[in-house]
């Protein structure tokens, strides 16, 4: 689901990656307005936890709901987040706001931007399946704090996280696309 000004292309790339790498069937829900209810005057940013709460209340039948937003997200202890998810819950959100920039300043190419968006989406959705941050260097669940860190991450899960994910699908009764 898109909230606010999010391009069609990035949405389709995220969906394709979720379907391919997580092997999950994905529906695209109608776009909605930017999440103004989560705006904080103090922080001049959007409160990620409030967005998650709203998403989790959705009456849609989908077991997981991911929102893409173009605004900058925060949680009260942190200056910003690229994405946020309910651990073992239903909702996840990805902010595209900081993904278009280089840490050292300037913009990045569209390819890099799309890849970053896909990585954050996969990472956050995996949190909803109880996956925690991974210490393996070659794993998308590795914690990344800056956009450059994101570029270092591979677009796949390590074998441990893959196994945890499989186990979680069984636990939550999720049918994989290729089963």
């Amino acid at each position: 689901m898109r909230l606010g000004a999010v391009g069609e292309a990035v949405l389709k790339i995220v969906v394709a990656n979720l379907q391919e790498i997580l092997s999950l069937p994905v529906d695209i829900l109608p776009a909605r307005q930017a999440p103004e209810f989560a705006y904080s005057d103090n922080r001049k940013q959007y409160h990620a936890a409030l967005i998650l709460k709203k998403l989790a209340e959705s009456r849609r039948p989908h077991p997981r709901i991911l929102a893409l937003v173009s605004v900058d997200l925060f949680i009260p202890v942190l200056t910003h987040v690229f994405g946020e998810a309910q651990m073992g819950g239903r909702a996840a959100v990805v902010s595209l706001h900081r993904l278009k920039q280089k840490e050292e300043g300037g913009g990045v190419s569209l390819d890099i931007f799309y890849e970053r968006a896909a990585k954050v989406a996969l990472h956050e959705v995996a949190h909803t399946f109880d996956l925690v941050h991974c210490k393996q260097p070659e794993c998308i669940m590795r914690l990344s704090s800056g956009p450059n860190d994101l570029d270092e991450l591979p677009l796949f899960f390590c074998e441990y996280c893959e196994a945890f994910l499989e186990e979680a699908y069984r636990r939550y009764g999720i049918q994989r696309l290729h089963d």
Partner: peptide
């Protein structure tokens, strides 16, 4: 003493296992 700080730090740390 602030619930939001407790909750968000709790959530963030939990995500790191």
């Amino acid at each position: 003493d602030e619930l939001v700080i407790r909750e968000s730090l709790h959530g963030w740390l939990k995500k790191s296992g």
